[in-house]
Nucleic acid binder design. Structure first.
Lengths: 343, 343
DNA sequence: TTGTATGCGTTATCAG
DNA sequence: CTGATAACGCATACAA
């Protein structure tokens, strides 16, 4: 029996005040006198009253809801990062009175149709995109139609980075890898190798750059580094082979950093766990197997994304930065020989 | 510049009819004359009009939104099933004009607080719970407060199964495992072993029962079966050890079924891929590694869950079954020696 | 078949 | 500081 929900009127009647006073207690408690407020609050508690979400949205003209796309291929070893991000977004959103609604889309065109559906119906007042690419039609559409949005991942177009209309938050992979190298060296490693993705992906190139920076600072020249870095497509087997190649070419390598936990796992298997390996994403796999990894701090990312959305709400007047780079955190773990695990 | 959204009045004016007629075109197209309807539809298209979600919700007194909890530990090898379920739920929900909203909760008590927040605010008109246990305080609370909900997973209490107030949909693990065994045998296997979880979990016991049924039907007696089934806690290493134990005790075993892909992966590693192994959940891991698995058909589960919610909406009068058992589907894959993959 | 009037629950405006 | 009144956009009962 879904009992009829109490309304402001019910509260007002019980407290012996007008509806408006109840509304004030809720929205601007400061302007209502102490004893009155207490009486109203008691009535609210007694009735278990909550503002009716739809009524409030209709009146305020804001949905207080953000939409996030749920990818079809949620699985996989790295999909967990998006899962964690989504979780953080929901949690931080709730603290700010924001709901998270999901939608799905088969492709970019389909997604734009969803934008239209959700925006034109005023069901949502902002979108969060989890990954974008150069010339992404989705961000173009959103900008063109004045739709509030923020992306997790910086735009990779040359000029887009500074586009004041494109709000984004990203994790600084370069810094993360640099710190991973430094931590490895501070723990005794000297020659730290790197396994990254083939160049061309912005994310991957940044991570590799972090390795180069750190190793340069440690006195390694370009020639030397050329034999210490490998490119491999995402995959455990691929990572394993890259590690084997690397160690064959440069046996003095005594530690490895990889652009992903997947590659790192491959490297770990290749070396039998005898070399320290640092992955990227700090996935459950890294945690379970027990190897080090660079954590993206999705919680901070989510908070920053919501900050930016609030800012875009307060018009473009803010003038503040339209983006935020989060420094990741290196999680160091001591791991034993990995063969125990798979044999 | 979020242009002002068109309303029914705008459409009515453009089409030269009253607001009511527009509303009729939208909600009961049958009762409006052909030419009028076309004129209104043209106006709708021209303005890009969409009903204002909040206004409609306020008026109709239904949120057209269901809430799903997003687990904190989304990762893991089997978390992917819930991900896929969620994806299916969003997709099927959209077809029925339902939105999916997320919430998080640290524990059952916290979750009940969320129920209260979302229900009392009329933000949501039903909940979907992804897993329940015996004496679950959440379902008790929901029933007690007349909140519409459906669970993915049957209630494991003795009397709860038939409780007409508890709507649930589940996958028939018993049938799934039985069919897996039959398929293995039809492909030449004779002695099919089983690796399941320690007894006590309803889900696990059902899966084991399916194996027993199939093997009994194939002529194996209890005594024989006792040496062909093993219990192991969830985990790759655990599955591997169980498989080794099993094969040592009963070398004639020529195929294995496991209660999860995790256990199956362990078994696969133990046997070096020389024995056919069937897992459960058809996770990305099974797909990637290439071993057989029982697929939960989350898409059907999602559709059934929404069906049930619609039914509960139409009061308890329906009298129809308050639950649905989905038959899973066995996905057979030929796999080669697995050592190539991990070494 | 179409139009008119009313209210869903909330908040904003403005008068007291 | 408090209370009356209007309006957000839509859908329904009822009248035309």
């Amino acid at each position: 029996m879904p009992r009829r929900l109490p309304t402001v009127s019910d509260v007002a009647e019980l407290a012996g005040v007008s509806r408006q006073t109840v509304s004030n207690v809720l929205n601007s408690p400061a302007i209502v006198r102490e004893p009155t407020r207490e009486r109203v609050e008691a009535a609210i508690a007694e009735l278990g009253y909550r503002p009716h979400a739809s009524a409030r949205r209709l009146r305020t003209q804001r949905a207080s809801t953000i939409a996030v796309r749920l990818d079809p291929f949620a699985g996989g070893i790295s999909g967990a990062v998006l899962d964690r991000f989504l979780h953080a977004l929901v949690e931080r959103g709730e603290q700010r009175g924001l709901s998270v609604m999901l939608y799905t889309a088969a492709d970019a065109e389909d997604e734009i149709r969803q934008f239209r559906r959700l925006a034109d119906g005023a069901a949502v007042d902002a979108f969060v995109l989890a990954s974008t690419y150069h010339g992404d039609p989705r961000t173009e559409w959103l900008i063109e139609h004045g739709q509030a949005f923020v992306t997790f991942g910086r735009p990779w177009g040359i000029a887009d980075l500074a586009d004041p209309k494109h709000f984004w938050v990203d994790v600084d992979g370069r810094v993360g890898v640099r710190e991973a190298v430094e931590q490895l060296r501070s723990r005794g490693a000297r020659a730290v190798g790197f396994i990254g993705w083939p160049s061309g992906s912005g994310t991957g190139d940044e991570r590799r750059a972090g390795w180069v920076e750190a190793m340069r600072a440690a006195g390694f020249d370009s020639e030397r580094l050329a034999t210490m870095g490998a490119a491999a497509p995402e995959g455990v087997a691929s990572g394993r082979e890259a590690a084997l190649r690397l160690l064959a070419a440069e046996p003095r390598i005594d530690a490895l950093v990889a652009a992903s936990d997947t590659l790192a796992l491959g490297a770990l298997i290749a070396t039998g766990g005898r070399l320290p390996v640092v992955g990227f994403d700090n996935t459950p796999v890294a945690e379970a197997v027990g190897f080090s990894s660079v954590d993206q701090r999705v919680d901070e990312v989510a908070a920053a994304a919501l900050d930016l959305l609030e800012a875009v709400g307060r018009a473009e007047s803010a003038g503040a930065e339209g983006h935020r780079l989060i420094a990741p955190r290196v999680i160091m773990r001591e791991h034993g020989p990995v063969l125990d695990l798979v044999r």
